[in-house]
């Protein structure tokens, strides 16, 4: 049989979405079986899709021709992040000053340290702005990286690794730096490693989890405000 897979897939309107969703389901199964943070469903899904595309000789563009309908919903989904934030607003009220300043210092540390290291490694402006939003949630970072002229796909990969790393090191980091308060723990984890890290915070406790998810959105917004200043440094 002589069918050109790439040509066929290019014309398929549902291939991209179907394979993406199945790959994510596969990732979830692996995660349920071995509860290791490295088996992050999103990471597994991405690697699985890449493997399938390479094995079948399908180009990324052909896959994206139908997978783009999945990305299309990213804007409305990001808009909806306001809903869980609104629901947790009362938690913020009690320690508002400490939490907001904590997140602010985290966002500044993130961008400041990325700047310093990028400068040391003599990265180009494009590479630098690709890495700048690395600590924030993918939904916001993708848009920011694009607006700044970064390489969005690398931004996504780096964010993913950041999240998994945060998830794996959260407990030991809190221990070493003597971060014992549940509110501070949650804020730290959410600010440094967004939603993938926050899954760990949720395992630690309810307060940690709630603070983590609050920090995700606030750190994202804080980064949006200051990133254009940082982008001019290099």
């Amino acid at each position: 049989m002589d069918i050109n897979m790439n040509e066929m897939i290019k014309d398929c309107l549902f291939f991209g979405m179907v394979i993406s969703i199945f790959a994510y389901g596969f990732g979830k199964k692996l995660k349920d079986k071995w509860k290791l943070p490295i088996f992050n469903p999103l990471l597994i899904a991405i690697l699985t899709v890449i493997a399938v595309l390479l094995a079948l000789g399908i180009e990324y563009e052909s896959y994206y021709a139908s997978a783009k309908y999945l990305s299309y919903f990213l804007t409305p989904a990001t808009v909806c992040l306001a809903i869980p934030l609104y629901q947790k607003l009362s938690l913020l009220k009690k320690n508002i000053k400490a939490i907001l300043l904590g997140i602010f210092s985290g966002a500044m540390t993130s961008m400041g340290s990325v700047f310093l290291l990028s400068y040391l490694f003599q990265l180009s402006h494009e590479q630098y702005v690709t890495l700048l939003p690395k600590s924030i949630t993918t939904a916001i970072a993708m848009g920011v990286s694009e607006e700044m002229g970064g390489i969005v796909t690398i931004t996504v990969a780096v964010i993913l690794v950041t999240g998994i790393l945060g998830n794996m090191t959260a407990e030991i980091t809190c221990k070493v730096f003597k971060i014992t308060d549940p509110v501070a723990k949650g804020v730290a984890i959410g600010c440094a490693s967004h939603s993938i890290g926050t899954t760990k915070a949720m395992e630690m406790g309810e307060v940690e989890g709630a603070m983590g998810s609050l920090a995700i959105v606030v750190a994202g917004l804080c980064t949006v405000v200051f990133i254009s200043i940082f982008a001019q440094f290099m």
Binding site: G16, S20, I21, A23, Y24, L42, A45, I46, V49, I50, L53, Y60, Y63, Y64, A67, K68, L70, S71, F73, L74, A77, T138, A139, M142, V152, T153, V156, A157, L160
Partner: peptide, 8 residues
């Protein structure tokens, strides 16, 4: 799920 296409 929506991050998969960009990740790929």
């Amino acid at each position: 799920y929506m991050f998969i296409p960009a990740g790929v």
